[in-house]
Amino acid sequence: MNASPPYLGFGLGLRTCYFEDIIQTQPDIDWLEIISENYFVDGGKPWHYLDQIKERYPIAMHGVSMSIGSTGEVNFDYLSKLKRTIHRVNPAWISDHLCFSSLGDFNSHDLLPLPYTEEALAHLSERLRIVQDFLERPLILENVSSYLTYHQSQMTEWDFLCALHHQSGCQFLLDINNVYVSARNHGFDAMDYLNAIPKQAVAQIHLAGHSDFGSHIVDTHDQPVCDAVWQLFECYAQSMPRVNTMIERDDNFPPFETLMAELNQAKALAPMSWRSHG
């Protein structure tokens, strides 16, 4: 399953604090991305607003707790809830993170990177097949930021992603902020990473902020997109066919107009061809 999602343009992460702004002002946004798990309930405030919003805007679904890289049994209870939500939302595409967050009964509530080994590659490819067969939909995987590496790793993260794409057809949600965070923390060149990923493997881009502590930086997604990430995006985009791109903010939420200004900055930095939906 490797069908590419439709090109929709430039979007925002839909968060509860912006429900009223979007419904009342109907801003010029091409699409919105929801956190899948927030809609596993049958009703309530999230669905009250989403049912109105999705009448006007295409919706993508982004999960945070699938833990596809886990070595435990596949969580079919979770996948059943996700599948029911997919049927109700009818999203343009679905995504989650290339990571693990649980080990047995332990849940770290964090997105932990995998060791980049042939064994992990085979394991992840098989898990991806199982998940996609159950959901009957392709699953796009996002690169996570990292603060440690494994002695066991046999390849770079970008070589691992390339191998996963060639082996499974998997496409990726490239979070350029996450690439920058990992590059700073581990001392590699972020453009080497971005340029290594096959162009046809990139289905979506996230742009977000982080917290800089000097000796290391942390992917907090609670700050504006920094100049270095904007520069990475602009440079990377020039060599790419158009890619669905969005601004992601998960905490410390600014006025809605501030996020719209960031979205407009992304449009301005992208090639002109990205601004056409035809």
Rank of each mutant, 00 (worst) to 15 (best):
N2M: 10
Y7C: 12
L14T: 09
C17E: 10
C17R: 07
E20F: 02
D21H: 14
Q26G: 00
P27M: 06
P27I: 03
W31E: 01
E33Q: 09
E33A: 06
E37F: 12
Y39H: 10
V41E: 03
D42N: 12
D42W: 05
G43Y: 04
K45P: 01
W47Q: 02
Y49C: 08
L50C: 11
D51C: 00
Q52D: 07
K54W: 06
R56E: 13
Y57R: 04
P58R: 04
P58T: 01
M61Q: 08
S67V: 06
G69S: 10
T71S: 13
G72A: 12
N75R: 09
K83F: 03
R84I: 00
R84Y: 03
T85R: 01
N90A: 14
A92R: 12
H97S: 03
L98Q: 05
F100E: 03
S101A: 13
D105N: 11
H109D: 06
D110K: 09
L114I: 04
P115A: 14
Y116G: 08
T117I: 00
A122V: 03
I130D: 12
V131M: 07
Q132L: 05
Q132W: 02
D133K: 12
R137I: 00
P138Q: 05
L139E: 05
V144K: 02
Y147V: 04
H151T: 11
S153M: 06
E157D: 13
C162H: 11
S168M: 01
C170D: 04
F172T: 02
L174W: 05
L174H: 10
I176P: 12
N178F: 05
R184F: 13
R184N: 08
N195G: 14
V202G: 04
H206L: 08
A208F: 07
H210M: 15
H210E: 11
S211L: 03
S211V: 04
F213I: 05
F213N: 11
F213M: 11
G214A: 11
H216L: 14
T220M: 07
H221D: 14
D227A: 13
W230C: 07
F233C: 05
C235T: 15
A237C: 07
M240V: 01
M246E: 04
M246S: 08
P254A: 11
P254K: 10
P254Q: 12
P255I: 00
P255V: 00
E257H: 10
E262K: 04
A268T: 14
H277Q: 10
